[in-house]
Nucleic acid binder design. Sequence first.
DNA 1: GTACCATCTGAGCAGTGTCAAGTTTCCCTC
DNA 2: GAGGGAAACTTGACACTGCTCAGATGGTAC
Lengths: 197, 197
Amino acid sequence: MAASYHHGDLRRALLDHAGSVLEEKGIGSLSLRDLARRAGVSATAPYHHFKGKADLVAALGTDAMEQLDAALAGPDHADPNARLRAMGVEYVMFAVSHPERFRLAFRPEMGDPFTGVGADGAMRGDDVLGFRQLAAVVREIEPNEEQQVALAIAAWGMVHGLASLFVDGPLRPLAEDLGRVRQMAEAAIARMGLSTS
Amino acid sequence: MAASYHHGDLRRALLDHAGSVLEEKGIGSLSLRDLARRAGVSATAPYHHFKGKADLVAALGTDAMEQLDAALAGPDHADPNARLRAMGVEYVMFAVSHPERFRLAFRPEMGDPFTGVGADGAMRGDDVLGFRQLAAVVREIEPNEEQQVALAIAAWGMVHGLASLFVDGPLRPLAEDLGRVRQMAEAAIARMGLSTS
DNA sequence: GTACCATCTGAGCAGTGTCAAGTTTCCCTC
DNA sequence: GAGGGAAACTTGACACTGCTCAGATGGTAC
């Protein structure tokens, strides 16, 4: 009797349980049936909230992207170059601190969150989570529009690569020491001549 | 009669078929049973050559890593800075040209090819595919050992990030035009002050 | 109060990874 | 050449998965 026929917010519950599974056992162990079981609901109930597994994973990816975006909002130095560097460090720290979330935000085999750059190569930055803040700070640093794209790509590429090497690449053994990661990220970012045009 | 009981080189055949499936339908559609079927063999035969699916995928990752390594051997400019930049461009071009292979080389959920950086942060570059050539050219550019690590990480991070953004990230729509990718990669890499210490 | 409709259930299909036990073939040794 | 052991392969089975479809349920708008 306590359990009502209608769950209330099954969609949210499924996503939350998915988050737990993700952190405990990784994306390979994510199963719709298991999530349904955890939510105390039949195996087919999730299909009333998601088109299928891919759709649920895509929703998780969007969630992750939003969290990354939020983490990037922290730094607010007056100097845009310093802010860009600080944002880069936070990007890497987020990835290392929440590897499953970071992977999910860039996992295209099931659902794709990106539509951020037009086929002509122009940035439509305001449309893309995470890119918005990058575009803003880049505009402060670089007046030339064409160079803005180059700078944004170089900066994003740099920190995304660092993050990937720590999360999925050869630097993984170092990722446990967060202080060291921060230090290495700062060093690598400092090495890049951001302000030179 | 024509078909012998023993396959001959089932391991190689399975990996080859896996390569085809990967390029045609992506890693999500990779199934051991399907590979066995394609090789004309029972569903459990692959277990005599791989511990399981994860082991097969790990072998594919190693293959991919070797191919990436080979692709990086191309450029041979006398100037080490120019060579490093050219290697970076080739890295990105490989990723964009063979996205499934590139992903596989950095896919840890099933098997992990990396042991390249000691817990102390020192490079053990000669042990790691791909890193070997990077370590060599970095040594030519940068005499200071500590700075070598920083430079190597910055350079690898940069090109790996670029590659990832083209393959799995917001720059994906641009990845179809290989000429444009090359041009953008060159611009982004040129922006990074590699030779400044 | 009744009709609607999103939500949820149950049974069932096709496909998967993996294991245990048996069969066939190759190859090395005498 | 004969014998024997090891490697390669098969059959059969189990537990699990994503997904579909027909039907039960119950809140809500009229």
